[in-house]
Design a protein around this nucleic acid. Structure first.
Lengths: 230, 230
DNA sequence: GCAAATATAATAGTATTACTATCAAAACTG
DNA sequence: CAGTTTTGATAGTAATACTATTATATTTGC
């Protein structure tokens, strides 16, 4: 998996930035430091002024790359979905059965990222933590319909579509492949968050195993439910 | 269900308000109008100044009831959980089997609220929409651990605990009753939101049926999965 | 190698937000 | 009806989320 990114460029909808941050050193530092800062402060307390201080530039510079902090968050989350889709694609390549493919998908999705080396300016470990705590804020807004129409969530949808294909392959009669795919993705975040911050409402501890087991059991059982009965 | 609230008072953790809004007419108007405004503007654009204008009072008055808008949101969401727990409690009363109880719970939870008459100052229909779009913002913050310790989420936990008891009753060997209960609650919101705003990633349309069917199938299948196999 | 274009820095400024403070007028309360 | 509590009216502050302007680098195209 490590070489994955050396030749592939993660594609982000260009509506999400004013100037592509990958196109300059400063842009990369903006992205790099924004991840560190958002993870540290939380999105609400994160400001372009603080980010400017972190990179040693005035905040007006950041506005040349991102229209506002909401779009910067969208950019980061979008990057994560694209990255995760590649991981999922690799995890399912050359795997014979759809059942095994889905199992591998679930592991790839639910695995807590640990990275020792930094290959790029993006720290995926921190970014995953941001996704867990902040990603739903990208769409839980009054602007969601417009932003959806503008393609801001394309990478998220692509990932879900990939899961849907596998799910439908396992059980073509299953009536809720999209619902299952999006539930699966979001339940992963939520349960990880609960495990860390509200342990009394989850059985998932810090380790990934219980969560993966729950999600695997949930998907297997729901996909077999109809077929075995009828 | 209608008489439910006439003699019962919804209990809200008193840490969530400075002065109990139920204790005065003004307090009730603050709550009433805040629901209308948050639903209309979204939580980000909602301000105490606008709320003040809506009730014809200066914003400083609102601060005498709620420390800030985050706590007001916590109050509203907390009210909803308590209200929903009563509904769930009634929906399961005198129901013989745990399986039927759980089915009734799911219906009570997933049913879109429609209210023709206003019995109280709280419009549950609007409030449910707020819960769908805004409730996760109450805990997806950097202050979650402190707020959790302070009991801000007690009503949410109570509801989950009630579901957990029924789930464990159906299958005492099931290893993830809490995970299932919280997933069920949150998936309901998420899928409703997707159904309305991002229909391509869900199979749930505006009507409740498909969502209820998915959640029922999911819970039934996962709770039967272990038992039938082993 | 230099002019022209572009990117960044430095600074200033604005409207709005999220409060806090003060004091007077109303309204209830014993 | 005196005293307490509640509300209204007004003012003020620090921070946020931008926008604008001008000067200085830096890159690039010829």
């Amino acid at each position: 998996m490590r070489e994955l990114l050396s030749n592939l460029k993660i594609q982000i909808p260009e509506q999400l930035f004013v100037k592509d941050p990958e196109s300059s050193d400063l842009g990369k530092r903006i992205v790099e430091q924004s991840i560190i800062l958002i993870d540290d402060l939380g999105f609400e307390s994160f400001t372009f002024k603080k980010l400017g201080a972190a990179i040693g530039s005035p905040e007006s510079t950041i506005y040349r790359y991102f229209e506002n902090k909401h779009k910067l968050l969208l950019y980061l989350i979008s990057w994560y979905w694209a990255w995760l889709e590649y991981r999922v694609a690799f995890a399912t390549a050359n795997v014979a059965t759809s059942e095994d493919q889905l199992r591998n998908c679930i592991t790839a999705i639910c695995e807590t990222v640990k990275q020792d080396q930094n290959f790029s300016h993006i720290n995926e470990e921190l970014l995953q933590r941001i996704v867990i705590s902040e990603s739903s804020k990208t769409f839980l807004t009054k602007e969601v319909d417009l932003e959806n129409k503008n393609g801001y969530f394309q990478n998220y949808k692509n990932l879900i579509e990939r899961l849907v294909r596998i799910i439908s392959d396992i059980n073509p009669d299953f009536k809720h492949p999209r619902t299952l795919a999006s539930t699966l993705l979001e339940a992963n975040h939520l349960q990880k968050f609960f495990g860390e911050h509200m342990p009394s409402i989850t059985d998932c501890e810090r380790k990934d195993e219980q969560l993966i087991q729950f999600i695997e059991t949930m998907t297997s059982s729901i996909l077999n439910y109809g077929t075995k009965r009828s």
